Deep mutational scan, measured.
Amino acid sequence: RPRTRITDDQLKILRAYFDINNSPSEEQIQEMAEKSGLSQKVIKHWFRNTLFKERQ
């Protein structure tokens, strides 16, 4: 599977949600997927990776 490139606009959407809640529900993930055009799997990975980076 090729690597997914996240655009600046998509990143703004993900960051806005992350700043509010770094552990989103399935409904929130689905909402982000619809708004951003990214798959739910990509969003879950982004949140997991970003949370890991923030904790270091």
Rank of each mutant, 00 (worst) to 15 (best):
D8S: 13
S23L: 09
I20A: 14
Q56M: 07
I20G: 11
K44I: 04
F47W: 05
Q10Y: 02
K41V: 07
L14Q: 00
E27F: 15
Q30I: 15
P24I: 03
R15N: 09
A16C: 09
I13M: 10
N22G: 12
R5V: 13
R55K: 15
S36T: 08
H45P: 05
A16R: 14
N49G: 08
P2E: 15
T4L: 12
E26P: 11
Q40G: 06
L38V: 08
R55Y: 02
S23T: 09
Q56Y: 03
I6D: 07
N22P: 15
W46R: 01
Q10E: 02
S36N: 03
F18G: 06
I29K: 04
K12A: 07
R15K: 13
F18I: 03
S39F: 03
Q28N: 03
F52K: 14
P2F: 15
T50D: 14
E27C: 10
R1L: 08
D19V: 09
L11S: 10
R1T: 07
L11F: 07
Q56P: 08
Q40S: 08
E26V: 10
V42Y: 10
K35H: 03
G37I: 01
R55E: 10
I29Y: 13
Q10P: 00
K41G: 10
R48T: 14
E26C: 05
P24Q: 02
K12Q: 11
N22D: 06
T50E: 14
H45Q: 12
Q10N: 08
K12G: 07
H45F: 09
E27T: 05
K35S: 05
E26Q: 12
Y17R: 08
F47G: 01
E54Y: 11
E26L: 11
Q30M: 14
R3V: 11
K35R: 05
Q40I: 09
T4F: 13
E27R: 11
F52M: 07
L14S: 00
K41Y: 10
R3N: 11
N22R: 14
F18H: 08
R3K: 12
S23P: 12
Q30K: 15
Q28T: 11
K35P: 00
I43T: 05
S25T: 02
Y17P: 00
D9P: 12
F52I: 12
F52V: 14
I29V: 08
N22C: 06
I6Q: 02
I43V: 09
A33C: 15
K44G: 12
Q40C: 08
F47S: 03
P24A: 03
F47T: 04
R1W: 00
N21W: 08
M32H: 01
Q56K: 15
K12P: 06
S36H: 03
S39W: 00
K53F: 04
Y17C: 05
L51V: 13
K53E: 12
W46E: 07
T4P: 07
Q10H: 04
F18V: 06
E27Q: 15
Q40L: 12
E31F: 05
L51I: 04
I6K: 02
E31D: 09
S39A: 06
D9W: 06
Y17V: 05
Q28M: 06
Q10T: 04
R3C: 03
I13G: 03
S23H: 15
L38S: 01
I6T: 04
K41F: 11
L51E: 07
R55F: 07
N22S: 15
S23R: 07
T7Q: 02
